[in-house]
Design a protein around this nucleic acid. Structure first.
Lengths: 201, 201
DNA sequence: TCGCTCAGTTAACACTGTCAACATACCGAT
DNA sequence: ATCGGTATGTTGACAGTGTTAACTGAGCGA
């Protein structure tokens, strides 16, 4: 009888994990429907499942969105790591991380907007930490630690981290909102400041 | 009969301008209901008017929200001008403008979240311009022009403008999202970099 | 085999944004 | 002063949303 074998692709989400399937279709919808928000019923429908089935895996819509946010940050970390790997020098690879942040936002606008809208429901930074410790956050902090002079204080590190993140995050959002023109040269010039900290102030 | 005199406060929104009233209650609701979004029906109801009356003054919900965004940026400009006026030195007053941006976001979280969510519907920067030319945008650009060395290029000015705006905007949003701890000293330290441009780079 | 729990279903509720049709207060021209 | 037109409201309905309650059925251990 092959209890859970063939999977048959349709039907029998029973024992296939619907949770991952929902997240997958959610991400797909965010790529397709370039503009605007996404709905719980919509992703359920597109997954071929009844709307209320979602509630077996997520307590409410916000939880589903938070899961999508997490998935988005994973993809962002992927892009950043790939970008960093293409440079040998540490500072060049660090700037590539910043470029990757903005590029990711512009390449996946709907996903990024959702990420910023629901950020507060996911990955709040832990007590004493200065930014979330997801993969993207750790990548940023590790690189800064390696780039700052060895006599830099912890506070210097924290400030540099926040500064860098705020710069690229704000820039990405402003460009996406149309308040800053989407010109590659301009964006590059701004992001190039990414990593120019005056530690001595 | 006094056609439009007493106004009687209730009834007879006829001839009082509902448009401003809607924006006013919208802003009030955003102050009160600290968390979460706002609805067209909700603001109509709270104004004491039927939901569809809104459509006499705004083509759809997005337009109403865009108007609230504009009103929000006006209030932000007020706060920034007031903050700047409390310092004599130009660079100190410029930093005060940056502080005011973050402070405003933290003081009016719901309004600021709405402003970032619907930013793309309002105040898109004009062709050739580098950030919206609302009052807040002009304040920023004017101050930067006055602070940069006179031999700075236009491109230097643009980059410095975007850099400053992206830094405070990103910081505000990250703190509001809980990804950066809400500690005044930390925020001040980050914003103090506001205005440290290496023009020569 | 019985019964339990997991994973899904349908039906309903309250709510939302939006549209069409209807009502009314104002205002200028007659 | 009256009359028609237009701006400004209203009610009623429709589709779609997030969410809950009650039901169904598969799979599995005792």
């Amino acid at each position: 009888m092959e209890k859970t074998a063939t999977r048959s692709k349709k039907q029998a989400y029973h024992h296939g994990d619907l949770r991952s399937a929902l997240i997958a279709t959610g991400l797909k919808l965010l790529e397709t429907k370039a503009g605007g928000a996404i709905g719980l019923r919509e992703v359920a429908r597109e997954t071929g499942v009844s709307a209320t089935a979602v509630y077996r895996h997520f307590p409410d819509k916000d939880a589903l969105m938070a899961a999508l946010v997490d998935a988005g940050f994973e993809k962002l970390a992927d892009a950043q790591e790939a970008a960093a790997a293409q440079h040998r020098k540490r500072d060049a690879s660090f700037r590539a991380i910043g470029q990757a942040y903005v590029h990711f936002a512009l390449a996946h606008p709907a996903l990024f907007r959702l990420m910023t809208s629901y950020m507060h429901l996911s990955g709040r930074c832990a007590e004493g930490e200065v930014v979330g410790d997801d993969r993207a956050g750790r990548l940023l902090k590790d690189n800064i630690a390696a780039l700052l002079p060895p006599d830099a204080s912890d506070r210097d590190r924290e400030v540099a981290t926040i500064q860098s993140l705020a710069l690229v995050h704000g820039l990405a959002q402003l460009v996406l909102a149309g308040r800053v023109p989407n010109e590659a040269a301009l964006i590059d010039a701004v992001v190039d400041k990414f990593g120019n900290w005056d530690v001595k102030s």
